[in-house]
Design a protein around this nucleic acid. Structure first.
Lengths: 153, 153
DNA sequence: ATATTTGCAAACCTTTTGCAATCTG
DNA sequence: CAGATTGCAAAAGGTTTGCAAATAT
């Protein structure tokens, strides 16, 4: 649902956006499409290097996708920069996640509760072209149950 | 109000937290205290280097303050890592900002509208020790009025 | 006086770029 | 075939660490 399609034809998707379909790019799009959460360049590279795709290619191609607004860059709460294929739900960009500070598990939040906040606050001040990033973090039920081993970062 | 105090006695504040009051540290605390928005290490260093405080000192001391939970690290929406002195409003950490994507202006949002969201969503899933980071971005009224000069980042 | 903290410089690691070779349409 | 794209390797940025000298208590 947030995916480009279930098991998409990456080559067709690429050409449909006026992009050349090389092996590396196809692997990158597949990787992005398969993830429900934003990935770091290293994450992506780890999965596509087997296909002979260089880190520089990941870097450059992700930049291209971001310029075309097909991928969005997210400043993750742990300080890493991540990238996410953009769901086609209109001009609004949603990035709602629940992150466990202990096990680093990430759960997307589907509800659009922030919409009201966004409209209320930002429009009150006359802002246009709004977007937002909300990351909630805490300790998940599983980690609360486990013996406490402080894994700081 | 989010400040340690108006024109605080940094040395006393430091000793009060069991930290040695060196010139560099005093300058760093003053800088943090004077800002309503999170700062990068470079921001802080730029202001304290005149006082002969090295970048490494800024780096190490901020790390110490963060371990003691006196300063909080924030993954800013532009990908930079920023640091903010922690307001004493309880265990809840608030980071609500309205950021202009054109002029980079930052306006803190005082309202705690996310509280409901946080409690609703996170507790529904059994998370503990919640905190959140919300950054709204858009184009401020002033920038909407100005002639459009696309300053990307 | 003594343990802590600092400045300096080097080590790291991630991000970015140049260029010749390779591939796509 | 021609221009776009890639791999490789080096450059650039920001972060982190070691160590001897300086500092706070």
């Amino acid at each position: 649902m947030g995916k480009v399609s279930p098991g998409i034809d990456a080559a067709a998707w690429l050409r449909g956006h006026g992009l050349r379909a090389t092996h590396g790019r196809i692997a990158i799009v597949r990787r992005l499409d398969a993830s429900r959460v934003p990935l770091t360049l290293a994450d992506i590279h780890a999965k596509v290097r087997a296909a002979g795709c260089d880190f520089a290619t990941v870097f450059r191609f992700i930049s291209i996708l971001e310029e075309k607004d097909l991928v969005e860059r997210v400043a993750w709460i742990d300080g890493t920069t991540r990238h996410e294929i953009r769901a086609r739900n209109g001009p609004h960009h949603h990035h709602h996640y629940l992150i466990c500070r202990t096990c680093q598990k990430v759960e997307p939040i589907d509800q659009c509760v922030v919409e009201q906040v966004e409209n209320q606050i930002a429009k009150e001040r006359g802002y246009a072209a709004l977007s937002h990033s909300l990351q909630l973090s805490g300790v998940c039920p599983e980690c609360q149950a486990k013996p406490k081993m402080k894994g700081k970062k």
